[in-house]
Design a protein around this nucleic acid. Structure first.
Lengths: 342, 342
DNA sequence: CTGAAAGCGCTTACAG
DNA sequence: CTGAAAGCGCTTACAG
């Protein structure tokens, strides 16, 4: 039976450990946080007593005393999308293990403004900020780099800030080339976020990549073959219906998210058309449901992106890790919704 | 320009507000937290100064001083499922607005044991616990009710503990009756979690309801018409393939989650069978993708369940809210995967 | 209705 | 390598 210097119902405090180990609380504090200059024998004894008493430092007290919040802020334009939830899950996972809290906020214009301005009251509560799909560009990144608060950007490649992103142009090219190789000549693309006040580089880059692959094959992308699908199922459905209503509909469509592709699949069913036979579809993400509907798609390891982002933030706070860009691999997964044109 | 008694870069503290308003910090603390016995004029002045200084209490300090952690624990057997993520999103939403933290844990046997035992060290860090789909039964609930820590149970109807749940038997009956009315006589069911060490009432209740509806119609549910789909896409696919391999396959299948239904849809496509024509399918949840694949399903407002659970917890902590069960409405959504048998 | 003061449980210069 | 002590920013009996 472990000794219980206080009532069995109360959590052990640092004083309990200090008393039991016959040292001061300062030494306990140092020993438990691996500070240098603690005699090895002392440290061993403290560790043992702490373990015996099942001592865990009160995080409110240690944060108050140290002035470190151990809290990371995360800003994203859309919190409810599958993509963002996955990223957040990855971030949360790593942060929780490091005993950091996560403060999530929407990247509305006000929050962005505060970020770029380096609003002290905003920063004082957090040790660092992770930006998910918040369009910065090099100009904004330069300002961010000037702040006292460490920033990690997810979804965009930046020079002056630690960032992790996929090569969107390449992903779109993968999709386009696949369809071109199958023999398609009339290709269309569905993006989104054109209406959002928060600028978004993702659809822009993907469209550029898609376009460049078409051009390389001597093909054109007419304006009526580009639609805004709002990155939602419903948006993808509407976009596909628009294509189908065209005098000369495309034979293949690239949708910049799997969710939009589900909407397109829905539209095809409504029109009595067979995906991969009458019209080919390629998505982007490899969402959990994609495999079951046979969707050909460009896979990106979303949760991994979140995990890596969190780790980079932790490294930065530890003083490790230089500012650099971390590219993430993209893979084309061929399934049943893409096939040769009729 | 607002006065800045301290450097513009530092967050205002309660002392700044007290000095500026010409009162003591005790009065500021009371005024800001709506305590009684603060003169109205004093309160107004303090509120104004606080607003001007953009004062926000340091939560570490207030939690340390008050001894209240303002943290709710959440335990669930499976954290990565869509269902749990939705519940958590609902809980988090309400809790964040109330400035409560959420501590998420897996409901593994150890954690459960600590719960039921009322382990002090576990409870000392949280103000309350929300249990999501952790099987308790009345016996376990009675023990939980004895703890000092408030508990809210989600997913099971209990007498001695505040709980919110859907009527699983009724939901399954809705699905069965719909299929029977369409003319089906050979009905099958896919559940899951039979192998989990954490007992699970959900599939049990749904199976019971399904069975009772069949019996009421003079039908039987043979053992080979019941499969464990593990509540995953892959599990649903495997289960459906087993049914199809039977000498006399069912003409309609009830899957206890939409994700399993996606797997069943996949299996049908692999077998060249048309859902709603060759075989009818009914799911459970109304997952975001369900509508786009035309899945007939029993809708439950999952995020709402999480929201309500969190609100009940907050009410309990405030001393409001009696122990009671809160039932949630279930609706059958008829779509294209269900139709008359061939 | 209000204030002086103790205390929450840690961390961290400072001195030894 | 170690300890005494101040301090982090609040809350809350206690006294008035």
């Amino acid at each position: 039976m472990p000794d219980q210097p206080t009532s069995g119902l109360l959590r052990a405090t640092i004083d309990d450990v200090a008393r039991e180990a016959g040292v001061s609380t300062a030494t306990v504090s140092r020993a438990l946080r691996n500070h240098p200059y603690v005699a090895d024998s002392t440290k061993q004894r403290i560790l043992q007593v702490a373990d015996q008493l099942q001592y865990v430092a009160n995080s409110n007290a240690s944060r108050l005393a140290s002035g470190q919040s151990r809290t990371i802020g995360l800003l994203a334009p859309l919190l409810t999308s599958w993509y963002t939830s996955e990223v957040v899950a990855g971030v949360e996972d790593v942060l929780a293990h490091a005993r950091f809290d996560l403060l999530i906020g929407t990247a509305n214009p006000l929050a962005r403004e505060r970020m770029f301005r380096g609003d002290a009251r905003f920063h004082q509560r957090i040790d660092g900020v992770i930006l998910v799909d918040v369009f910065c560009s090099e100009a904004g990144a330069a300002k961010l780099a000037d702040l006292e608060t460490p920033v990690v950007v997810l979804g965009e490649q930046l020079r002056s800030i630690t960032s992790v992103s996929v090569d969107n142009e390449r992903g779109a090219r993968l999709a386009a080339r696949h369809l071109i190789e199958l023999g398609h000549r009339r290709l269309a693309a569905v993006g989104g976020h054109a209406h959002m006040d928060v600028a978004h580089n993702v659809p822009t880059e993907r469209l550029r990549g898609f376009q460049s692959a078409l051009e390389a094959a001597g093909l054109k992308l007419p304006a009526q073959y580009v639609e805004d699908g709002d990155f939602t199922i419903e948006g993808g459905r509407t976009a596909m219906h628009r294509f189908l209503a065209l005098p000369k509909p495309p034979t293949a469509v690239f949708l910049m998210s799997d969710e939009m592709a589900y909407g397109a699949l829905w539209a095809l069913r409504e029109a009595g058309l067979r995906p991969g036979v009458d019209i080919s579809l390629v998505g982007f993400d490899d969402h959990p449901v994609a495999e079951s509907v046979g969707l050909t798609t460009v896979r990106q390891p979303v949760r991994e992106i979140g995990r890596l982002g969190a780790r980079l933030m932790l490294d930065t706070l530890d003083g490790f890790g230089a500012v650099m860009h971390h590219p993430i691999e993209l893979t084309l997964i061929e399934r049943e919704t893409s096939g040769p044109p009729r």
